[in-house]
Design a protein around this nucleic acid. Sequence first.
RNA 1: GAUUCUGUAGCUCAGCUGGUAGAGCAGUACACUUUUAAUGUACGGGUCCUGGGUUCGAAUCCCAGCGGAAUCACCA
Length: 509
Amino acid sequence: MHQLSEQEILRRNKLEELQKLGIEPYPSELFDVNFYAQEIHDNYHPELNNFQEVVLAGRLMSSRVMGKASFAELMDSSGRIQLYVNRDEICPGEDKTLYNVVFKKLLDLGDFIGVKGHVFKTQVGETSIHVTELKLLAKALRPLPVVKTQKDEATGETITYDAFTDPEQRYRQRYVDLVVNPHVRDTFVKRSQLVQSMRNYLNDKGYLEVETPILQPLYGGAAARPFKTHHNTLDMDLYLRIANELYLKRLIVGGFDGVYEFSKDFRNEGMSRFHNPEFTQMELYVAYKDYAWMMDLVEEMVERVALALHGKTEVQVGDNVINFQRPWQRYTMFEAIEKYTGEAIGEMDETALRATAAKLNVHLEPSMGKAKIIDEIFGEHVEGKLIQPTFITDYPVEMSPLAKKHRDRPGMVERFEAICNGKEICNAFSELNDPIDQRKRFEDQLELGKRGDTEAMVLDEDFLRALEYGMPPTAGLGIGIDRLSMIMTNSHSIQDVLFFPQMKPENNG
RNA sequence: GAUUCUGUAGCUCAGCUGGUAGAGCAGUACACUUUUAAUGUACGGGUCCUGGGUUCGAAUCCCAGCGGAAUCACCA
């Protein structure tokens, strides 16, 4: 255990003092709350004389003792409310221990307490709880960071003092971050609402939420390096999934018309403010549809998410206001590249593409095929400039081994990505359901692998077997929940939308 | 992996060209029955990230390491 600080020792001593007074610092019995701070703030009116018997519980976040009466702040899951604690009211008899010793001396900021009382407004108009009973519910042995706020009378803005800001501590001790930084809590509530709003949308359409394996004997469905693990009893290597695509398509083969899954996927690659080794996607597959239909769905679903979270389609992200109102801009990949670089690359062969890339200062590796070069040009010169939600359609076949060939553009597939704030937020195709073509595409991937592409896909015989039994024409979608959450909550880093982002161990020498 | 910044009290931070470790909040004690960054007085609290080196003397300078952030690389 770590060396205890002065304040931690004091709190442990107080714990013993409480026990000596016969007060259990961690009582077992339930404490029935009947109201939350926020609903009192929203609905209390002195003239109605409502909220005259309230029971609340939460953390003690501040206290101002003024002799025989005190003000304190209680924070529950909905917010904060002021408490008024009067010695002679919580200690009606001769024994003033509960006020003089327990409340004034032995309670600390951060302790969980329960209170009963009635609501009133103080002379300065602050809605408060006049406490008649007070009970310790759980003692906190470590001091929380002390964050104070003050309302600026002139502007009405809240000024925060000594905010808990050290990113390392905030990520390592997210529980502390959540307690003292209300905006952090709000971000995660919004993330949850985002997922809920998508789920509601998909359920309303009658699609089935499913679960598919995270531990897979072969990884597939995306171009990425996997995490590898081992099952002892079977004595076999397994991979943590990098995508769910191939399993969800097996379910379409099995006869479901629409299946979706919110899934943690794992990619053993670099970390950045847009990348965490484990991240969340929602994948959706709908039978008898195509990618054009899926574009409409994405627009509608994401517009609905924005409305659910913000009540409007405009969302402030950094310096930009992003408007998710339908319809979104649509470009083919070649159109977009031409628009932003002036280069018409549609008819170029690999040699010409390499020359163009060089002209545009795009760095290439010898292992890159034609499709990868196009992708590099797009990534370097176009993607970052697409701030408003934009669909990019019709990708080269080589970089989309699971997408169906374009119905009338040779060499292309029916695929789109939605780009927003300069980053991809989703990827979708008319799914390849021709088993012979799919086998050939896998074989082409194996070739890329031999050229040194560590992210080339592996051939999945069982998946091909499923396709050979017949998969209906299907539209598929993968949408990055972390990326979308970042945009919807105006978060600069993926770490701000993950409760517990990946970190190196604290004590490593 | 590269570059830059960064690590000092529970929290937020200051600490100059090297000379006994500082502030505010938090804490402790006392006072105070409508305060709200409550107030007043007094007091306590440190492995200055770790390990070397230079020096009479290192939080400070040098080297190495560890953690974190940003940008880049990588990553559809």
